[in-house]
Amino acid sequence: MNLFRLFGDLSHLASIFILLQKIQSTRSCRGISFKTQALYATVFITRYLDLFYEWVSLYNFTMKVFFIASSCYILYLMKYKYRPTHDPSIDTFRVEYLLGPCVVLALLFHYKFSIPELLWSFSIFLEAVAILPQLFMLQRTGEAETITTHYLAALGAYRALYIPNWIYRYFTEDMVDPIAVTAGLVQTALYLDFFYVYFTKVLQGQKFELPA
């Protein structure tokens, strides 16, 4: 464990609490892509199956349980409790265009040809692109509530912090995970546009609005 990874994970935790806070305080999931949230639940479930047969640490175990549980809870909130506030007509990204290529990539790039390892690879590739339905929705509506942008910023920060973590691990542990690093770089790159608007507008106290 190093500070980059710790703060990355904490930022990931924070993003989930911000999202829950957004839903509970506005009593609405307006502006949140159900598809992205469903993809994250898929990512956590397919990646953290090792929870049942592999012990890494108490930290690792607790976080895995938390990510699976919170992502399922968010799906429940969106699908049942606050269902009327979710507008599927603006959440139109075709997720099959993401799932298909991720299956192919997992079959091509993995560390071992076994079910858990293939699912692990699949989850890594899927996580890299899972934010796309959300960003697509943002692009379509052209604006977002400030709290939603804080959620996205915390999620992006988590990914960004994993990059110095990998550099650090390369030098201190001689450890490289090419699949995670490649997918992680792509994932972080997807946030660059968002970060630009977040830093130049939201953090200056303005509303998140995309130029027409």
Binding site: S57, Y111, A180
Partner: peptide, 10 residues
């Protein structure tokens, strides 16, 4: 180090 890294990251 390239052979099967442990999946200890989240």
């Amino acid at each position: 180090p390239l052979a099967h890294p442990e999946h200890d990251e989240l």
